[in-house]
Design a protein around this nucleic acid. Structure first.
Length: 465
RNA sequence: GGCGACGUGGCGAAGCUGGCUAACGCGGCGGUCUGCAAAACCGUUAUUCGCGGGUUCGAGUCCCGCCGUCGCCUCCA
């Protein structure tokens, strides 16, 4: 393994080394969803990218603390709840549960903390108070706004010049149209609100992340992530709030994932028929969805379609067959170590981690994985490795797959039903009698029972499909 | 209009601190294995990286222009 993990930062526009913070922990904050409906497939990208990043850093021997929030107070939630005729808190609660449920199905584990806005009100009010005290924010007609022209670095993340920016966001009491809301006074048609020094109301969209990140991770944490679409204004505003309040850097690396291209014929944002994550997971196994996302670099736009998922399914199948080849060979291993396989294992391991070290290059890591798979297949067909070598290769393969949450692809298959065993025997008898018609009937019956038959040097094998 | 990203084979996708024969996967084609398949293996599938210039001994990789696609521009992951 090389010495350093580097990640591209949107702020510095270059790759920067990931250096663990105090107590050797890499602290990661990634903006989570606003819960006003079931999350769509695009929302899954940051969840997957940052969850897998955490898994990778830990495999690399680092300790991590990964925090991803749920925004459960927001204009969209009020609107959606009104449309559905339920209270906004009920909608937010339902959608929060659904989000956890849907993303759980990806099998990547949960972030270490998933704070919610509704549970972070004291911290939020605290940060706002600090900003008001420091003259960086002001109350106006029940609202509180951030004075953008008091924060010199405003625009640094998104490369915007304050003088050239135009705002069309309403706000009666604003000093400057570009000032953004930290606190919004209660409106008559809003059914949830909190008390504050500036009157009843609720937090603005950006302040929650400043408050929750500093509460959970402290100042100057290592990685702040989210979708690229959040860079402006959300992250720009977070920086202004957090750094304005603490006079310290908010985060070292600003890591943004590119967007999914959801503009295919079958769906469009304007039509609102974007595939929902849970629907996709009803159609495809989690491994397929993970392979689909991870085969592309996180900073690349990624087109979404059934054809792409079908492609990812083939990718998974090839990996699965590689693991099966090892297991099959274990039944009749060789006498000596296979040197080609030994070399391939070293190379795959090196290339896999080198690719990830360099700006989380998951596509390159996949390439390394496939190089290993080919070497495995070659070895199983050629000079059979020893059982010990097979075991070692299997262990390493599973370890790499596990970084991506794909270890399930190398899981041994479950027991084969007696019915299938009987048919298998029947087919063998038929083949011995050279009655291939009967043999093929048995094979078709096995297929109907959900198993695929493959003849191998070790005799016929059946695999679930 | 402003800011930014990107255009690599039939498809997806690496490479882009310039220099071995342009990774890897899917698909196609030919072969091996098989009774036939499936899986796997072997070979093949871009003299070429949107187009046009330039810099350089040398560029997909740097610079300029053009064409095209996309994201953001005050609450979209």
């Amino acid at each position: 393994m090389s010495e350093a993990v580097a990640i591209y930062s949107t702020l510095s526009k270059q790759k920067e080394p990931v250096t663990p913070g105090p107590e050797g922990v890499v602290r990661i904050y990634a903006c989570g969803p606003t819960v006003y409906g079931r999350v769509h497939i695009g929302n899954a990208r940051p969840y997957i990218v940052f969850s897998v990043l955490k898994r990778f850093l830990e495999r690399r021997g680092m300790r991590t603390l990964f925090v991803s929030n749920l925004t459960d107070v927001n204009d969209k939630i009020y609107v959606a709840a009104r449309e559905q005729g339920i209270s906004s808190s009920e909608l937010a609660e339902n959608c929060s549960e659904a989000y956890v449920e849907d993303t759980d199905r990806l099998g990547l584990g949960r972030p270490d903390l998933e704070p919610r806005v509704t549970e972070s009100m004291p911290e939020i009010i605290d940060v706002i108070q600090t900003l008001v005290d420091k003259g960086l924010a002001y109350a106006a007609g029940g609202d509180v706004y951030f004075r953008v022209d008091r924060f010199a670095r405003y625009g640094a993340l998104s490369g915007r010049d304050l003088d050239e920016m135009v705002s069309n966001e309403p706000g009666e009491g604003k000093e400057n149209p570009l000032d953004f809301a930290l606190w919004k006074g209660r409106k008559p048609d809003e059914d949830t609100w909190w008390e504050s020094p500036w009157g009843d109301g609720r937090p603005g969209w950006h302040i929650e992340c400043s408050a929750m990140s500093v509460t959970a991770l402290g100042r100057d944490f290592e990685i702040h992530g989210g979708g690229l679409d959040l860079a402006f204004p959300h992250h720009e505003n977070e920086i202004a709030q957090s750094e304005g309040a603490t006079d310290e850097r908010m985060a070292q690396i600003w890591m943004h994932n590119e967007m999914l291209e959801l503009s295919g014929d079958k769906m469009s944002k304007s039509v609102g028929n974007i595939a929902l994550l849970h629907e996709v997971l009803d159609e495809w196994p989690a491994e397929v969805v993970l392979a689909y996302f991870l085969r592309a670099h996180y900073r690349s736009k990624l087109p979404f379609s059934d054809a792409h998922l079908a492609d990812a399914a083939e990718v998974c199948e090839r990996i699965r067959n590689g693991a099966r080849a090892i297991d099959r060979a274990m039944g009749s291993p060789g006498e000596a170590t296979n040197p080609q396989l030994a070399r391939a294992l070293v190379a795959a391991r090196r290339d896999f981690y080198a690719a990830l070290d360099d700006d989380f290059g998951t596509p390159g890591a996949f390439a390394a994985l496939f190089d290993l798979i080919r070497a495995i297949n070659q070895a199983v067909e050629g000079d059979r490795p020893t059982a010990g070598q097979l075991q070692e290769v299997r262990r390493e393969l599973v370890e790499m797959l596990d970084v991506f949450g794909l270890a399930g692809l190398a899981k041994g298959e479950g027991a084969v039903p007696a019915e299938v065993i009987d048919l298998l025997a029947e087919r063998e008898a038929a083949r011995d009698a050279r009655d291939f018609e009967r043999a093929d009937v048995a094979r078709d019956q096995i297929l109907e029972l959900g198993f695929e038959l493959r003849d191998t040097p070790e005799g016929p094998q059946v695999y679930p499909r």
